[in-house]
């Protein structure tokens, strides 16, 4: 496939650091869209603020770069106003679970037909390496120089508990899995979340002595465990491991159907 067909080539090369995995995720999204044969004009890519949220700037879809954490709020409006659009939200871990945390869980509860792709690099990269809700305990960040005292969020479990209809997690190293999950999520009716773990060598790897992008991707390669295998393992054995796989895949009525019912009832004047 030709990636350049989907890119705004005058905006390239992108600003992401060397070794950052965000470009790999963007490629995966483009491959999935290409495979599904969707027209560029039928897709809306919405983002908030952060490294990950630079994505729409480089892609030649209908794109919307919104305020910090509020990408889902804008996307909800878009989807309701024009249900024919394929609405994709790209968001970082801080954008989705800290500033936009409430939008995230309530969009999942509402089960509106949006695909959300969360780039989880454990840190606020763009704003200077501050601690994010997914920074693992004891890891260093610019606002946690002695180590992070908090326990991290598990984004996939959070989405599962909040009621999303499709939840999956992969790493950027496992491109095949990532393609499968993003492809499934795009086709799913209902709120679908794909969490992709991506290295941030500049803000996270450097402070925690985890090396460059290649070293961090090698860690992903060697420490990833499938969700089925992880079910039979103890918590000690899972420490420091990355659990990937499909967490939820269920069918549930989308919000748009229920909203249409409300419109019909209101218009009938009963």
């Amino acid at each position: 496939m030709d990636y350049l067909y989907y890119l705004r080539q005058d905006k390239m090369p992108h600003i992401w650091c060397d070794g950052c995995g965000h470009g790999i995720i963007l490629k995966s999204i483009l491959r999935c869209v290409d495979k599904l044969g969707w027209d560029k004009n039928d897709i809306a890519l919405v983002s908030g603020i952060g490294c990950s949220s630079r994505t729409p700037g480089y892609v030649d879809f209908n794109t919307l770069h919104t305020t910090h954490g509020r990408a889902l709020a804008f996307a909800t409006g878009l989807k309701i106003a024009n249900p024919k659009l394929h609405v994709i939200v790209v968001s970082g871990d801080g954008d989705a679970t800290a500033i936009g945390g409430n939008h995230f869980i309530h969009a999942a509860r509402r089960n509106i037909d949006i695909t959300m792709i969360i780039y989880n690099n454990y840190i606020y990269g763009m704003t200077g390496g501050q601690v994010s809700p997914t920074t693992p305990a004891h890891k260093k960040a610019s606002t946690a120089p002695y180590g992070n005292p908090d326990e991290p969020f598990d984004i996939s479990r959070l989405a599962q508990a909040a009621g999303a209809t499709y939840v999956a997690r992969s790493t950027v190293y496992h491109v095949g899995k990532m393609d499968n999950y993003i492809g499934n999520a795009l086709q799913k009716t209902g709120f679908s979340v794909v969490e992709i773990l991506t290295p941030c060598p500049t803000s996270y790897g450097r402070r925690n002595k985890e090396g460059n992008g290649v070293d961090m991707m090698r860690y992903q390669k060697e420490n990833t465990i499938g969700i089925e295998k992880a079910k039979n393992m103890s918590a000690e054995a899972l420490a420091g491991k990355i659990v990937t796989g499909v967490f939820v895949d269920k069918e549930q009525e989308s919000y748009l159907n229920r909203y249409n019912e409300v419109i019909k009832k209101a218009q009938s004047g009963v």
Partner: peptide
């Protein structure tokens, strides 16, 4: 095509 898929910079 693994290198093509893993190249973050479309290079």
């Amino acid at each position: 095509k693994l290198c093509e898929k893993l190249c973050p910079d479309f290079a």
